[in-house]
Simulated scan of single mutants.
Amino acid sequence: MQDTDRDLLPEGLGDRLPQQAAASQRVRRAALDAMASHGYERVETPTLEFEKSLASRMAGVQVRRMFRFVDPTSLRLLALRSDITAQVARIAATGLAGAPRPLRLCYSGQVVTIKGDGLDPVRERLQLGAELIGTDSVAAAAELVEIAIEALRVAGANGISVDFTLPDLVDTLAAEALPLAETQIAAVRQMLDAKDAGGLVDAGGAAYLPLLYAVGPFETAIERLAAFDTGGVLAGRIAGLREIAARVNGAARLTLDPSERHGFEYQSWFGFTIYAEGVAGSLGRGGTYRILGGAGDEQGEPAAGFSLYPDPLIEALAAEMPGRKVLFLPLGHDRKVAARLRAIGWTTVAALSEADDPIALGCSHRLENGEAISL
């Protein structure tokens, strides 16, 4: 019986063929170069770690999304990373614990989850990002929003827009200004996130209804949020949002959805999601958070950062990439001339036999008498 499924890949996983791989490398290099130009030093982390390590550095990390199995050497539970941010947090709290703050780090790598998000079946994605460790100030948040925009722009994204949110909004209001029972908080968050007015009232959050309308273009939405904040509980956050928006002004279209929670498992007072024209879905998100330390460290270290997931951008760029200029080198070609042409940017493909066809091999030019002749 013929084996017909030996080359199948699991759902949500896939290869990148040459044109897609070239686009991926271009995006990765451009984005990381942009981060490095702002002083962010690159770190690399393992794809596997002990589950406890991945789950203990950030509040809200969901271990149920990770592939987990027992390490035959240590007999401890291992997990495939689903988010590199937690690993960078570990590095900051251990190997770089004594490094001067604020500490600027960036990274790149593949992450894997047990299942995709919503209707998206993809389970392996490229994650690029930057973390600023030691502060979660407005200035830090603004710097990271600017760098995220720049990284996507130089990578090839157009028409970038950024949506701001306040991930701890309900907790902040429920603590004093608009009290909620502990059992109501999760339901109110969920109804606000779903934009369900009726469900919000049923959950005991009628006082939170104005937040459903403090959504849209930043200038309009921030005024509605300020009008809602009659007690001034959100005054500091509103001022922070205005300052960040002023820093970003003109670099991207800005919107505000203060109660958005999707994808913000561990962010604190500020969060943002970033989009680009012609690319379905978001390309990343970021915000402020805290890195949890060792035993007895309840507060943790403040930090801010962002993660980009540029796979949709890579697919779009791969489809638009122009054909390569590739020079065919016939048998017996001058190797010094070929080396000189590669040094000035040519890609060369050398013939291995007389039967090699330059056009079939994807070449655009042929080397003849020391010159590149168009095919």
Rank of each mutant, 00 (worst) to 15 (best):
E150Y: 00
A89G: 13
A372I: 07
E320V: 09
A21S: 12
I238T: 04
E49D: 10
G263N: 08
I149S: 00
E371N: 00
Q110E: 11
A181Y: 01
H38M: 07
V188K: 01
E320F: 03
V122G: 00
V88G: 04
E223K: 12
G216A: 08
D168G: 03
T347V: 15
P100V: 12
E44L: 13
E260N: 06
R324I: 08
Q20G: 10
A227S: 13
E150R: 02
Q20W: 06
I114A: 07
A355Y: 01
I147T: 02
L329D: 11
R65S: 12
R65K: 12
F228T: 06
G98N: 09
R101S: 04
T183W: 05
I291P: 07
I133K: 01
V111T: 14
R81I: 15
Q110W: 02
L361I: 07
G370L: 09
E354Y: 03
E124K: 04
E315W: 00
E320S: 15
S24Y: 03
Y213C: 07
E298V: 15
Y289D: 07
D71K: 04
P167N: 05
L329K: 01
A245V: 08
L313C: 09
S161W: 06
A36P: 08
G109T: 13
V138S: 02
V337P: 10
D196Y: 09
G39K: 08
S161T: 13
V162W: 02
F228P: 06
I274Y: 01
E176M: 00
F270Y: 08
R189I: 11
E146W: 00
S74E: 09
H365A: 07
G281A: 13
D33R: 00
A34C: 10
G240T: 05
A177G: 04
I373V: 13
G300V: 10
L200K: 00
R261S: 15
A280Q: 11
H38E: 11
G287H: 03
L13E: 11
A355C: 04
L313Q: 04
F264C: 14
L225D: 04
E277V: 14
R90V: 13
G300P: 14
Q110D: 10
D3R: 14
G362K: 06
F164C: 09
E49G: 06
A175Q: 05
F272L: 08
D357M: 05
P72G: 06
L103G: 04
D356M: 08
G116P: 14
D193V: 10
I238V: 14
F328G: 03
A155Y: 03
E41L: 09
P167M: 04
Q20L: 13
S137L: 02
T172N: 02
L48V: 14
S82C: 14
K195S: 11
A140E: 07
A181Q: 10
A177T: 15
G284I: 07
L32G: 08
N158E: 15
P312L: 13
G293I: 12
A187Q: 11
